[in-house]
Lab assay of single mutants.
Amino acid sequence: NQESVVAAQLIPINTALTLVMMTTRVVSPTGIPAEDIPRLISMQVNQVVPMGTTLMPDMVKGYA
């Protein structure tokens, strides 16, 4: 089963992602794949992401 990127903390809107903000977990439905974490660093979220929420492609500016 593929791991997806999950918020390790509350991420406010327009925050640039850092490694410490993200963790990985096997979730359903699947979100952004864990191997894309290096690509996500410094990208901004376009909404508030509560802790434990799976990051979906449409939540990250410039990802999709």
Score class of each variant (00 low, 15 high):
residue 5 V to L: 04
residue 51 M to N: 10
residue 34 A to L: 15
residue 22 M to V: 12
residue 40 L to D: 00
residue 16 A to T: 07
residue 49 V to H: 00
residue 10 L to R: 10
residue 45 V to T: 10
residue 50 P to K: 13
residue 29 P to R: 03
residue 51 M to W: 04
residue 33 P to M: 10
residue 64 A to D: 08
residue 39 R to T: 09
residue 18 T to N: 07
residue 45 V to K: 00
residue 37 I to L: 09
residue 43 M to P: 00
residue 21 M to R: 04
residue 46 N to G: 15
residue 49 V to I: 15
residue 60 V to I: 11
residue 58 D to Y: 12
residue 59 M to G: 01
residue 39 R to K: 14
residue 61 K to H: 07
residue 7 A to Q: 01
residue 37 I to D: 00
residue 40 L to Q: 00
residue 12 P to W: 12
residue 15 T to R: 04
residue 25 R to L: 10
residue 54 T to L: 08
residue 28 S to M: 06
residue 9 Q to M: 08
residue 3 E to S: 04
residue 31 G to F: 02
residue 5 V to Q: 00
residue 32 I to C: 06
residue 9 Q to T: 13
residue 34 A to Y: 09
residue 45 V to G: 00
residue 39 R to M: 11
residue 38 P to I: 10
residue 37 I to S: 06
residue 37 I to G: 07
residue 35 E to A: 14
residue 61 K to Y: 09
residue 33 P to L: 07
residue 18 T to P: 00
residue 25 R to C: 07
residue 46 N to Y: 07
residue 3 E to L: 04
residue 50 P to F: 13
residue 39 R to N: 08
residue 37 I to A: 08
residue 64 A to L: 15
residue 28 S to W: 03
residue 13 I to T: 07
residue 5 V to H: 01
residue 58 D to S: 15
residue 37 I to Y: 08
residue 12 P to M: 09
residue 44 Q to F: 07
residue 28 S to R: 02
residue 42 S to W: 08
residue 21 M to I: 03
residue 56 M to N: 08
residue 29 P to M: 07
residue 16 A to R: 04
residue 60 V to L: 11
residue 34 A to R: 08
residue 59 M to L: 04
residue 10 L to W: 14
residue 26 V to C: 15
residue 58 D to E: 14
residue 43 M to C: 04
residue 15 T to G: 04
residue 2 Q to K: 04
residue 16 A to K: 12
residue 52 G to F: 15
residue 34 A to T: 08
residue 17 L to T: 00
residue 60 V to Q: 00
residue 26 V to E: 15
residue 49 V to E: 00
residue 3 E to I: 05
residue 44 Q to D: 04
residue 31 G to T: 02
residue 2 Q to S: 10
residue 34 A to I: 08
residue 4 S to K: 02
residue 7 A to D: 01
residue 9 Q to R: 06
residue 36 D to N: 11
residue 19 L to R: 09
residue 25 R to E: 13
residue 28 S to P: 02
residue 51 M to C: 07
residue 55 L to G: 00
residue 30 T to E: 14
residue 25 R to N: 11
residue 30 T to S: 13
residue 10 L to V: 10
residue 29 P to L: 05
residue 30 T to A: 11
residue 49 V to G: 00
residue 34 A to S: 14
residue 16 A to E: 12
residue 39 R to H: 12
residue 31 G to L: 02
residue 48 V to A: 11
residue 60 V to E: 01
residue 33 P to V: 11
residue 47 Q to W: 04
residue 52 G to M: 14
residue 64 A to M: 13
residue 59 M to K: 02
residue 18 T to G: 05
residue 34 A to N: 07
residue 58 D to A: 14
residue 63 Y to A: 06
residue 35 E to S: 13
residue 50 P to R: 07
residue 47 Q to H: 14
residue 20 V to T: 10
residue 47 Q to N: 06
residue 7 A to I: 02
residue 11 I to L: 12
residue 25 R to A: 15
residue 62 G to T: 05
residue 32 I to A: 02
residue 22 M to I: 13
residue 38 P to W: 05
residue 33 P to D: 08
residue 4 S to N: 02
residue 34 A to M: 12
residue 7 A to Y: 01
residue 32 I to M: 03
residue 10 L to P: 08
residue 27 V to Q: 11
residue 20 V to F: 07
residue 55 L to C: 02
residue 47 Q to M: 11
residue 42 S to R: 07
residue 44 Q to K: 07
residue 49 V to M: 03
residue 6 V to K: 03
residue 2 Q to V: 13
residue 21 M to N: 06
residue 52 G to Y: 06
residue 50 P to W: 09
residue 1 N to F: 15
residue 42 S to L: 03
residue 56 M to Q: 13
residue 53 T to W: 08
residue 6 V to A: 07
residue 54 T to A: 10
residue 58 D to V: 13
residue 3 E to W: 04
residue 43 M to R: 11
residue 12 P to S: 12
residue 7 A to P: 01
residue 18 T to F: 03
residue 12 P to C: 13
residue 4 S to Y: 15
residue 19 L to I: 07
residue 40 L to K: 00
residue 57 P to M: 13
residue 1 N to G: 13
residue 62 G to M: 08
residue 31 G to D: 01
residue 8 A to D: 14
residue 31 G to V: 10
residue 13 I to N: 14
residue 26 V to A: 11
residue 12 P to H: 11
residue 32 I to W: 02
residue 55 L to T: 01
residue 60 V to D: 02
residue 24 T to K: 10
residue 37 I to Q: 07
residue 5 V to F: 01
residue 31 G to R: 03
residue 40 L to R: 00
residue 42 S to Q: 10
residue 35 E to M: 12
residue 30 T to D: 11
residue 27 V to L: 08
residue 17 L to K: 00
residue 49 V to K: 00
residue 47 Q to D: 12
residue 60 V to T: 02
residue 29 P to E: 14
residue 51 M to D: 12
residue 49 V to W: 02
residue 7 A to G: 03
residue 20 V to Q: 06
residue 29 P to F: 06
residue 33 P to C: 14
residue 33 P to K: 08
residue 42 S to H: 11
residue 46 N to C: 09
residue 30 T to G: 08
residue 44 Q to H: 09
residue 60 V to M: 05
residue 31 G to I: 03
residue 15 T to F: 05
residue 27 V to N: 06
residue 53 T to A: 09
residue 56 M to F: 09
residue 44 Q to E: 09
residue 20 V to I: 13
residue 64 A to G: 14
residue 28 S to D: 15
residue 50 P to E: 10
residue 1 N to Y: 12
residue 64 A to K: 15
residue 2 Q to L: 15
residue 34 A to V: 09
residue 29 P to T: 11
residue 46 N to W: 03
residue 4 S to E: 00
residue 3 E to R: 03
residue 47 Q to K: 15
residue 12 P to L: 07
residue 38 P to A: 03
residue 13 I to R: 09
residue 22 M to D: 01
residue 6 V to P: 01
residue 5 V to I: 09
residue 6 V to G: 01
residue 8 A to Q: 06
residue 4 S to D: 01
residue 26 V to H: 05
residue 19 L to D: 08
residue 31 G to M: 03
residue 48 V to T: 13
residue 54 T to V: 12
residue 5 V to S: 02
residue 5 V to D: 00
residue 22 M to S: 01
residue 37 I to T: 06
residue 52 G to T: 06
residue 23 T to F: 06
residue 38 P to Q: 06
residue 3 E to V: 05
residue 61 K to A: 07
residue 47 Q to T: 10
residue 1 N to M: 15
residue 3 E to A: 06
residue 60 V to A: 02
residue 62 G to Y: 05
residue 28 S to E: 15
residue 45 V to Y: 00
residue 50 P to H: 08
residue 57 P to N: 09
residue 62 G to V: 05
residue 9 Q to H: 11
residue 3 E to F: 07
residue 35 E to G: 07
residue 8 A to N: 11
residue 22 M to H: 01
residue 35 E to D: 14
residue 43 M to H: 10
residue 8 A to T: 07
residue 13 I to D: 13
residue 55 L to I: 13
residue 47 Q to C: 06
residue 18 T to S: 10
residue 41 I to E: 07
residue 52 G to L: 09
residue 17 L to S: 00
residue 40 L to M: 07
residue 36 D to E: 08
residue 26 V to Q: 15
residue 31 G to N: 01
residue 16 A to W: 05
residue 16 A to C: 05
residue 12 P to E: 12
residue 39 R to Q: 09
residue 16 A to N: 04
residue 16 A to D: 06
residue 25 R to F: 15
residue 10 L to Q: 10
residue 59 M to N: 04
residue 38 P to D: 05
residue 46 N to S: 13
residue 24 T to H: 14
residue 63 Y to E: 04
residue 21 M to G: 02
residue 64 A to V: 11
residue 8 A to I: 10
residue 42 S to T: 05
residue 31 G to K: 02
residue 21 M to Q: 04
residue 37 I to F: 05
residue 1 N to A: 15
residue 56 M to P: 01
residue 21 M to S: 04
residue 63 Y to W: 15
